[in-house]
Design a binder for these strands. Sequence first.
DNA 1: TGAAGGATTTGT
DNA 2: CAAATCCTTCAC
Length: 198
Amino acid sequence: MNLDPSWLARPSTEVAPDLVGCYLIRRLSEDLILRGLIVETEAYAPGDPACHGYRRRTPRNQAMFGPAGRVYVYIIYGMYHCLNIVSDADGVASAVLIRAVQLETLPPWIDPHQEPQHRVAAGPGKLCRVMQIDRSLDDHPLGRDHSLDLEPRSCEFQRQLETGAHRLIQTTRIGLTKGTDIPWRWYLADCKAVSKKG
DNA sequence: TGAAGGATTTGT
DNA sequence: CAAATCCTTCAC
């Protein structure tokens, strides 16, 4: 990972906005590496009724309680997977849901006629589908030697944020029944790859 | 052991 | 707006 590991060992509400603009790397083989610009994230943290770790540690959510720099992957609605980057200190149930990425290049099995490239990973379930992320990766570490990795923002992206050429919007999270009023969702303004507006 | 429900997506 | 679809969690 091109990021200092301690960078993720902060509260998810700090990590989530900082992850927007970073790259998610999926290494499927030597020849097939997918890179996606993270454009939308959500934070889940202790004391948050929507957090899977809100009640207690279970076999499903145990990865969230682990150290920062690993991933928490779960199945939702019986048919989609969602990818989280585990954050904060070891023992703290904290993670950042990656809700959307903008893929640099499409994997060869995706037909560009079916859907525009900027929409194929617009949504947490869709990005896991197109990047072939499932529960077999749950609790796996991020890193240069691993099938999942993270790269920091480019200098140019950072500068565009600072000059206002890119804007980060903070608002409420999507699809929840609890904690609906907590504004822990961040996305890149005017980005076509974001799952939903608002 | 059973039932309710869910951090979604898609099509009507 | 409702269905698809099944795993997890909690109650009895």
